[in-house]
């Protein structure tokens, strides 16, 4: 059974036409299922967990990056997670902006998302961990004065720029490859043009007394903080144009 989780911002009237179009398309494809609108729900975690208990085969995030994070946040490190990982697959229908995670999975728009749900191409995806928070895409911090401690060595960055700790690449134009199921984080440091640093690690400690770490473009975290990776945590339906192999 498919369960569609509509994020609360989709209650706005400007999304009515898009939602209608999605629902018609899903019906045409025979993918219609239960719809849950987060707008009227206080206990989001409990609601999502309950659907998994009831045997949802596919949970579809209809919304943006935050919708996906809400669903993952509702199940990860809970009693229901084992069932979620074994029996449930995460699908995504992007609506509106802030949809870099869907783009990483090769899902460009809502119509294509419906076709991708039908094709049901599933990949096991790692999750990055920073503090108590799990992330799919990446964490970033200003490079000047940042120190990264990895295994037996440390890296100090002495120029202005940005450090990206990448699990799932969200920008196809970045000149690096990142694999979200290799059990490693890709560290990409860009300061001046042509001055780029690239390496990978399973975990690292980030320290920068003057700047905070920005996780998935939303959550700010003070340093020093450890960033790690947890392998194959979520089964996701992806498109063939995804940004990884």
């Amino acid at each position: 059974m498919h369960v569609y989780i509509y994020d609360d911002y989709l209650n706005k009237s400007k999304y009515n036409k898009t939602i209608n179009r999605i629902e018609i398309r899903l019906t045409d494809l025979g993918l219609n299922g239960k719809i849950i609108r987060l707008g009227g729900i206080k206990n989001i975690k409990g609601t999502i967990q309950n659907e998994i208990k009831l045997g949802a085969k596919t949970i579809v995030a209809v919304g943006n990056n935050q919708t996906i994070n809400k669903i993952i946040g509702a199940v990860i490190d809970t009693d229901i997670y084992s069932d979620f990982q074994k029996k449930t697959i995460l699908g995504i229908i992007p609506v509106g902006g802030d949809n870099s995670i869907a783009a990483s999975f090769g899902i460009k728009n809502e119509e294509e998302a419906c076709n991708i749900l039908l094709a049901r191409r599933v990949e096991k995806i790692d999750l990055g961990i920073v503090g108590q928070y799990y992330f799919l895409n990446q964490a970033t911090i200003q490079s000047l004065g940042t120190i990264l401690e990895i295994d037996d060595y440390s890296l100090e960055i002495i120029k202005r720029g940005e450090v990206s700790i990448i699990n799932l690449l969200s920008d196809k134009n970045q000149s690096i490859k990142s694999n979200p199921h290799d059990g490693k984080l890709d560290i990409y440091i860009k300061t001046k043009r042509k001055d780029q640093t690239y390496l990978s690690a399973k975990k690292l400690l980030i320290t920068n007394p003057n700047n905070k770490l920005l996780v998935d473009g939303v959550i700010e975290m003070a340093t020093p903080i450890e960033v790690g990776i947890s392998k194959d945590r979520v089964n996701v339906i992806v498109g063939k144009d995804r940004m990884f192999e």
Binding site: D151, L155, E156, G161, I189, K192, Q196, T197, Y198, L199
Partner: peptide, 13 residues
Amino acid sequence: ETIIGASIKVKGN
């Protein structure tokens, strides 16, 4: 697999 750019100081093994 690894590139250490000109703006980086590495210390350790």
